[in-house]
Design a protein around this nucleic acid. Structure first.
Lengths: 165, 165
DNA sequence: TTTTTAGTTCGGTACTTTGCGAACTAAAAA
DNA sequence: TTTTTAGTTCGCAAAGTACCGAACTAAAAA
């Protein structure tokens, strides 16, 4: 008897904590460039027990209008962070975190680093004095980036998705 | 004679290109979360030949008001991306890119990754079903992060600032 | 002491972003 | 065929952000 009461207490407390975490993650994602509503949707999909949320559930849980949900979900989908699945005989969309695995995230980071290196190259090319403090600094950064990219390559080799489960 | 003319042509063309690059970098930095004015100041400090700019020079070059410059420079300084130096007998502040080297940038990245791992841990802790698709996914990501951190450690060891110049 | 220099702070305007409700569409159910 | 369901698109109001000019401060120069 006692145990059951404790257990229900725990469950509701757990859900309280989950909801708080949804808001916290929302704020984090805002800093990452997502709009508030999108951030909280992401939080919801990350922390709650349910694996797949319908459009309506998202509207209810995050307490937003259908239009806001529609816009935010489309953006999140375009960015590739969420995806939706459908089931035969059911018109609803079931949203969930997309299983874009680490590899594609790493590729994104790699591309970003390479773009930065190109930019640095351009800047140096346009400098009058190629021995200035700033050019030295940029070369240093650039070499560091080359190192970094090499290590990423090794990392990708060592990383075998199936061995991680 | 011919050569001299060509040389002056090149110089002005170079400066034109630099100014275009300042604007371009400004727009890039906006995407990174800086306000427009701050982004263009960063661009200026990165691409132009001058190593150190006074407050007034920045106001003139970026064509902004003193108040905007003051606010933007303070923010950039708080974020640690620029710094200013002073010279004895000169009241002016000379702004330049801060020489935060790769190591501190790497440490920032490391901290960020560790914070993400903590968050994932928290989320998993609050999940009812620890064997769900999402928990599996999160564990995978988390393990990937551990790998990543180890490689960063190795990278830091291999990286010897003085060997890069 | 007064003036100039080198900035900072404040208040307001203009622009941008966010999120809503209402009207709409397209498919399924009645 | 009409109604309901599941969502989308559009226009607008509220909130937030960026930037400016004007007034201010504190130190140095005249």
């Amino acid at each position: 008897m006692r145990k059951i009461i404790l257990k229900t207490m725990d469950a509701s407390e757990r859900i309280e904590k989950q909801k708080a975490l949804v808001e916290y993650i929302g704020r984090m994602q805002e800093k990452e460039g997502y709009q508030p509503v999108a951030g909280r949707i992401l939080g919801l999909l990350m922390v709650m027990d349910k694996e797949e949320f319908t459009f309506e559930e998202i509207v209810d849980e995050v307490k937003i209008s259908k239009s806001s949900a529609s816009v935010a979900l489309r953006n999140l989908e375009l960015r590739g962070v969420i995806e939706y699945v459908t089931y035969p005989g059911d018109r609803k969309k079931y949203y969930r975190l997309s299983t874009m695995d680490l590899e594609s995230t790493l590729n994104e980071i790699e591309k970003k680093v390479i773009r930065s290196m190109d930019l640095i190259e351009q800047i140096i090319e346009l400098k009058e004095d190629k021995n200035s403090r700033s050019v030295d600094f940029m070369r240093k950064v650039s070499k560091g980036m080359v190192f970094f990219l090499n290590h990423m390559k090794k990392f990708k080799k060592t990383y075998e998705p199936n061995m991680l489960l």
